[in-house]
């Protein structure tokens, strides 16, 4: 256990814990855009900054709490003038990239300062249509029609974690944007849609209708459940994962309801057997389950 100070209070943390996690654990509200528990932190958005002091005297350092790990005796302050100023400036800059983002606008209100002036006119937040095949179609065919990208890198990191590595940040500076290699629609994309779901600003658009999913300028045919016809997974995703998991395409693309129905048929017909507890039960899970 490591002992440190957080806003004057003594707190205990485990070795290697991030300042962000410690602060949240003890109830501090730290804004972030680029942090996602499933992937490594990148320090891209700079909203989670805190001020740290290694010694009693001397100036503090303003550091992103998602990258900074705990140290014995560290003095951490989550609300200082410096911290406020950095957060306000960061939000103002990010708002220039993504003025339509509802998440960013509420962040601007939270951090206050000049950034909140930039967010007077409320417009409808981008809405992600998820799952069901009967969803709305996006007004724009272009993928870049969303609320604005702040280059947080959640989408690219998740895509890499999934093993597809289809999208990355292309270009530099003001020209930087997320896309497939060379700014083209990503060939390696499987249409899983995880990027759209996780995008903090609602920039990445996913549209699904008539058994076709569109994302990143590509179209993916949805495989329908062999039982009820509901669209389940994009064909490319299903084929790839079917090979990885060693599960047939048919099984992988049956919807849970239909799978449950057919397994209930099997289990309902099994003969009763004696168990150690003296109960009568059917035993379908032998070898598969505990």
């Amino acid at each position: 256990m490591i002992e440190l100070r957080l806003d004057g209070e003594l707190v205990l943390a485990s070795e290697g814990e991030r300042l962000l996690d410690v602060a949240r654990r003890v109830g501090r509200r730290i804004p972030t855009l680029c942090d996602h528990p499933a992937v490594e932190p990148e320090g891209a958005c700079r909203l989670c900054v805190v001020e740290v002091r290694d010694r009693a005297e001397g100036p503090g350092r303003v550091v992103p709490s998602c990258l900074e790990r705990v140290q014995p005796g560290l003095d951490v302050r989550t609300v200082t003038q410096e911290v406020k100023l950095v957060r306000q400036t960061v939000v103002r800059l990010l708002l220039r990239r993504a003025p339509e983002s509802a998440a960013l606008r509420s962040l601007a209100e939270e951090v206050g300062g000049k950034s909140s002036e930039a967010v007077r006119e409320p417009t409808e937040p981008a809405e992600i249509n998820w799952g069901k095949s009967s969803g709305a179609v996006w007004a724009s065919e272009e993928n870049a029609g969303g609320a604005g990208c702040v280059l947080c890198g959640i989408c690219t990191r998740l895509c890499a974690a999934a093993g597809y590595d289809a999208i990355s940040i292309q270009g530099r500076g003001a020209e930087a944007r997320v896309s497939g290699p060379g700014g083209e629609p990503p060939e390696a994309c499987t249409g899983c849609g995880v990027c759209a779901r996780a995008c903090p600003t609602g920039h990445i658009l996913l549209a699904e209708s008539g058994g076709v999913r569109r994302i990143w300028g590509r179209r993916f045919e949805m495989i329908r459940c062999g039982g009820c016809g509901e669209a389940t997974l994009p064909r490319e995703l299903a084929e790839l994962e079917s090979r990885r998991l060693g599960v047939t395409l048919v099984e992988l693309t049956h919807c849970p309801t239909c799978k449950r129905r057919s397994s209930a048929e099997k289990f309902g017909e099994l003969p009763a057997r004696r168990t150690r507890e003296g109960l009568s039960e059917s035993g379908p899970m032998k070898g598969v389950a505990r």
Partner: peptide
């Protein structure tokens, strides 16, 4: 399910042979 880490990709439900896992749309 660790909901903070979950990205709702749905592969777990697809992989389950028995259909005993599914996406709750309302939360999601």
């Amino acid at each position: 399910v660790n909901e903070e880490r979950c990205t709702l990709c749905g592969l777990c439900a697809a992989a389950c042979p028995f259909g005993n896992m599914e996406l709750e749309h309302s939360r999601p």
